[in-house]
Simulated assay, not measured.
Amino acid sequence: MTEKVLDNNVLVSIGIPFFNCENYLEDAINSVINQSYSNWELILVDDGSSDSSTKIAEQYQNIDSRIKLYCDGTNLGLPSRLNQLSDLALGEYYFRMDADDIMHPERIKTQLAYLIDNPTVDLVGSGLIAIDNQNRIIGLRKGLNKDFYSLNDIVNGYWCVHPTVAGKTVWFKQNKYDPNLKRAQDYDLWIRTIQTSHLSKIEKPLLFYREASTPSLQKYKIAAFNSIKIYVKNREIIGSMKAIIFIFIKLVKLFIYFIYNLFNLTDRLIDRRSFKLESNSYQEYKEILETAVKSKVALQVMK
């Protein structure tokens, strides 16, 4: 690790967009507060929540000056909020995160050290531990770990899961998400930028990713059709024939998901994404997770 990181001189911006996430937001924020690296700002942007999410965010803003809440009462959608977050970021480096996920206590320290030690890298992802809605560990998410990813890797989905990404703030300010894409906006951004950007990945799991909070046929269908839209709009980058092949594959996967959903078996598809952990590793990550979400203050929020 570099002396610069040890000296805690680098300001890091963490961006969390949220919408009706009262069941998970406290854990997400606590996992930022419990980071081993402390020179950060946490930007919370509400996308028109109607539950107690905003009240939770307000209370944390009141107890920690590093936490900033932005709330305009409107629902603009995730990609617009992601662009807003990077525009608001003051740090030299920017960390993505979702409101239903949990940071490993060493996440910022580890990814920041990697970015500083590898100045040609624009974005770095990480491995992750999948969890369910009750913070129970599902397993270690499968993936391909490389120091440099190609266009072919990105199109095939071999890079990383979106909320594990960290990178140079200027990169996010210069490369925007497409506000017209309801889902898979990250996938589109990686495809559009991979030929001029250096994307890398750390194998170590640095995020507890909530696999089970979003599975539904409707959401999968929206993601699938947005992916098809991405293949069409980026066919000159991908190649027309490859774009057609990927569209066909996506439609087949949608049909398979429909069949699994018909028989209430979608959890099996989620389980297939992860490796089961050995008992020692399971216990280790269980303890890390408990440490990450441990609250240093009791909030009184009426839900």
Rank of each mutant, 00 (worst) to 15 (best):
residue 179 P to E: 14
residue 63 I to D: 09
residue 84 Q to I: 13
residue 91 G to F: 02
residue 299 L to H: 06
residue 190 W to G: 02
residue 9 N to V: 09
residue 287 E to C: 11
residue 153 D to N: 09
residue 299 L to V: 08
residue 137 I to H: 01
residue 31 S to D: 03
residue 119 P to K: 15
residue 185 Q to A: 13
residue 80 S to V: 12
residue 70 Y to T: 10
residue 260 Y to L: 12
residue 164 T to K: 00
residue 35 Q to A: 08
residue 88 L to A: 10
residue 10 V to M: 10
residue 260 Y to G: 04
residue 184 A to G: 05
residue 136 R to I: 08
residue 90 L to S: 15
residue 78 L to R: 05
residue 32 V to E: 00
residue 143 G to E: 02
residue 2 T to R: 14
residue 149 Y to R: 01
residue 233 K to N: 14
residue 258 F to G: 10
residue 132 D to V: 08
residue 274 S to G: 09
residue 124 V to W: 00
residue 234 N to D: 12
residue 259 I to T: 10
residue 57 A to H: 06
residue 219 K to Y: 14
residue 260 Y to Q: 08
residue 279 S to W: 09
residue 98 D to F: 01
residue 33 I to N: 00
residue 237 I to M: 10
residue 231 Y to N: 06
residue 264 N to L: 12
residue 3 E to G: 10
residue 124 V to L: 07
residue 28 A to R: 01
residue 74 T to I: 13
residue 298 A to D: 15
residue 58 E to H: 12
residue 89 A to H: 03
residue 46 D to H: 08
residue 287 E to W: 10
residue 91 G to E: 04
residue 271 D to C: 09
residue 135 N to G: 07
residue 131 I to V: 14
residue 58 E to S: 13
residue 175 N to S: 11
residue 212 A to N: 11
residue 109 K to D: 04
residue 82 L to E: 03
residue 27 D to V: 04
residue 59 Q to E: 15
residue 111 Q to T: 00
residue 292 A to M: 10
residue 150 S to Q: 13
residue 276 K to W: 09
residue 248 F to I: 15
residue 214 T to Y: 11
residue 271 D to F: 13
residue 272 R to I: 08
residue 143 G to M: 02
residue 286 K to E: 14
residue 261 N to V: 05
residue 274 S to L: 05
residue 245 I to Q: 12
residue 91 G to K: 02
residue 136 R to K: 14
residue 206 L to W: 02
residue 284 E to I: 12
residue 193 T to N: 12
residue 250 K to S: 11
residue 71 C to E: 10
residue 104 H to P: 00
residue 224 A to Q: 03
residue 154 I to V: 15
residue 288 I to E: 07
residue 213 S to Q: 08
residue 199 L to R: 02
residue 29 I to V: 10
residue 96 R to H: 11
residue 131 I to M: 06
